[in-house]
Design a protein around this nucleic acid. Structure first.
Lengths: 165, 165
DNA sequence: ATGTATTTTCAATTATTATTGAAAATATTG
DNA sequence: CAATATTTTCAATAATAATTGAAAATACAT
């Protein structure tokens, strides 16, 4: 397979993978494109390479910036903004986890806490127990993600794997 | 808040949460309904409680069954099929992880392996390095999920948390 | 300040995904 | 084996989400 072909394929694969996780295809594809690009790209470049509109490119670039997955980079003598991706994939994973935690786990925890305020009764006992069960799970995922964030990659996995062998 | 109201709210919340993770709203809602239901429910019950069509109910019940998140249950003297949900949320988490691993991580690993077959050249070096970086990440997620699956809840989190304090 | 390049916004459109519901298939009963 | 209950399928429809593109806003240079 040729290099350009392989990159194209990767962009496709990453896009599909994204949609399965609630990330829209274009966003995942812009991300993939920047990951496999050796030099920073501007909006025009991205529009061309992915055949998407300016609006679409702009919106997803912004969103990826919010997720801390890509950075602005200026090129001397050019007034356009260029973008490059974080290429350390462990770092990428950590940032995605961090962001989803903030955007989803935390709000979910609040919702669950609200639900426990249901009026007490014989019938509500098992409901509250279930909610508490979920709270426990969520707070565990939460600590796990916190741990993940702080842990150095090598040390973390080394210890995990040793723990259970 | 009243119990029925709280259950309704939970179903809503679980549904929204699902959509953010690539699971369709109805499926998440059927799941939620069964989680908070004290007795097993049949298709009719589910249709009514969620105001969804027979086809929709049937399809999502089947899908939840494939994910091992709900079970068929028969009620003596009734010829309809009834369903109940696994209520141990740790178990639920493990099954979701197991299923997503099988459906997504494994195919992704195959794709990545393919991409490494790109023809060697000066330009392809960094591409292959990136792919290998991703492979490493994926195989780590893979072991982590494997570990998760076998680990007892308490032991697992106890050890994790001790590790990093 | 004026003109030009660049970025952003957002209503309209298109594409995708989910849902319906009636018909077909299957299972169960007497 | 009918008759009936139940489940499944799937083409049509509806709902949702993504995308476009041109206009507005902003940033920059002279």
């Amino acid at each position: 397979m040729e290099l350009e072909q392989a990159k194209q394929q990767f962009i496709q694969t990453w896009g599909n993978f994204g949609t399965q996780w609630g990330i829209n295809r274009s966003m995942a594809q812009v991300h993939a494109l920047l990951i496999v690009s050796d030099s920073p790209l501007c909006t025009e470049d991205i529009m061309e390479r992915l055949s998407i509109s300016r609006g679409n490119a702009n919106m997803n670039i912004r969103e990826l910036t919010n997720w801390n997955l890509i950075y602005k980079e200026s090129i001397a003598g050019d007034r356009k903004e260029y973008f490059r991706a974080e290429k350390d994939m462990w770092e990428v994973a950590k940032r995605i986890v961090k962001e989803r935690k903030r955007r989803e786990l935390e709000p979910l925890q609040q919702h669950l806490a609200e639900l426990k305020k249901v009026e007490q009764s014989y019938e509500s006992i098992s409901f509250v127990a279930t909610i508490e069960n979920i709270e426990r799970l969520v707070s565990r995922l939460d600590s796990l993600s916190g741990t993940l964030m702080k842990a150095d990659e090598h040390v973390f996995f080394g210890k995990i794997l040793n723990l259970f062998k």
